[in-house]
Design a protein around this nucleic acid. Structure first.
Lengths: 252, 252
DNA sequence: AGCGACCGTTCGACATTGTCGAATCCCGTC
DNA sequence: GACGGGATTCGACAATGTCGAACGGTCGCT
């Protein structure tokens, strides 16, 4: 019976839809092109298992609390993350900047770990966030080393976030070639104004790139006055990436 | 057709199982008492939608990255959390302790928000974690004010975490009465050695308790020398809880 | 090396199961 | 009090998922 189970596929589609905000039954049914009755049955089931909740007053549906457990369950099971946590802490301490670990998910960068910059300033935790591949240092690393990531992206029109975002395919390809040559990627105000980042590839068994680790922070702390990434930071990031890779290749 | 959809219920059960660690097909099929063929079909579908991943070598299954997106999607949609974030930051800054916000989920406390203690020490983020109801300040608040939470718990045998954990039903009932009388709950080394906590209820529309907010930290910072919670901290926590409650009742 | 046991995967027939669209109910609004 | 939009229920149909046995690969043991 090598065919996906229809009901489960549809339920998953409903959840993916709801991930972007609360919706009414009608909207969901219309988006998925399903009869309302069918959609309601799916929703009712997802509610009994705690994957969606329903607003008593408006009747609209939203994601449920049980999903949070599953999300953190994924993080616990994620090998890349668990191996990288200790090195990420060390990198944050040594560099004084925020550290992020990302992997490819469906044309974006999924942040699987985030260590705050070691100071008292309030910061948003963005584990679980999706970042653009072409406008972040983490994403460029993934693009540069994984053809299965880069291929589909070439078809899409790239979004521009700041004046510096590289959206021209030729220019991006050149930048990715540079990443491969140097072994690390950087980004300066291409995603968020005033922020720059450096990232390096994490390799799993067989040398395949399975993720990326990098630091990000204010432009004047991450870059030299020449606007090139600080050499010391680049070395720290590369060392951390190599350390994680060694961990991954050896064990598990 | 008011009956849950079988296939989806089963898929959800598979996910809940996998939340506790990676498993093989046989183990999953046995745990759920399903034929291997059926289980495999469910797993295959969950894999195509990214909810589970499979280890190439061992063949074992684990949760997939797409679930992380859904988990954070839940957090974004969660009204209690979004209203409480600002007040939680303020409470952490004023009290100098870590702040947590919890709600009831399925006989436990689900941590939906966590602000680190404002200093440089490395701390584990535990958004998504499940804490025991009877051994934490957050949980005692939920138990004290919500009969639908307290009822089922009376049936279960309570787990003991430290020497101080209260597991005798009578003693716990007395403590909950005290919580109701004072309007806040506390806990000293009942869950983690060396840690104490204070929490207060968050009320939604209609005055129902929908969650709890509280601080936790080293015993000697949270408690007076008399072992009673520091009066100033109790006031700060209660004020924060009231502020969040006002936010929730007014809008949405 | 060869054998055996285990585990994930595939297959096809069966009937259980989910699907569908119309009809109903409920609520807020005019 | 009637209208409208939404969620919800219903029952017949057949498409759909289920089941258990058989396949094929891999690891561990002899």
């Amino acid at each position: 019976m090598p065919g996906p189970i229809q009901a489960i596929e549809r339920a998953a589609a409903v959840l993916q839809l709801l991930a972007r905000g609360r919706l009414g039954l009608g909207e969901i049914a219309a988006s998925l092109d399903l009869p309302k009755g069918t959609t309601h049955g799916i929703l009712r089931t997802l509610r009994t298992v705690g994957f969606v909740e329903q607003d008593r007053a408006s009747g609209t549906y939203r994601l449920g609390a049980a999903l949070l457990r599953l999300g953190t369950g994924y993080l616990d099971a994620n090998e890349l993350r668990s191996r990288a946590i200790n090195w990420a802490d060390a990198l944050a301490a040594r560099s004084g900047e925020a550290v992020r670990i990302g992997m490819h998910l469906d044309g974006t960068v999924l942040v699987v770990h985030h260590v705050f910059r070691p100071d008292d300033t309030p910061q948003m935790l963005d584990v679980g966030a999706l970042l653009p591949l072409h406008a972040t240092a983490l994403g460029k690393v993934l693009l540069a080393y994984d053809a299965t990531v880069a291929g589909p992206l070439a078809q899409r029109r790239l979004a521009s976030f700041t004046r510096r975002t590289v959206i021209a395919p030729a220019e991006l390809a050149r930048a990715l070639g540079e990443v491969r040559a140097r072994g690390w990627a950087s980004e300066a105000e291409e995603y968020l104004p005033g922020e720059a980042a450096i990232a390096a590839p994490i390799r799993g068994r067989g040398g395949l790139v399975v993720g990326a680790i990098g630091v990000s922070g204010a432009v004047d702390r991450v870059l030299e006055t020449s606007l090139r990434p600080r050499t010391g930071l680049v070395a720290q990031v590369s060392d951390a990436a190599r350390a994680v890779s060694r961990d991954l290749e050896d064990t598990g």
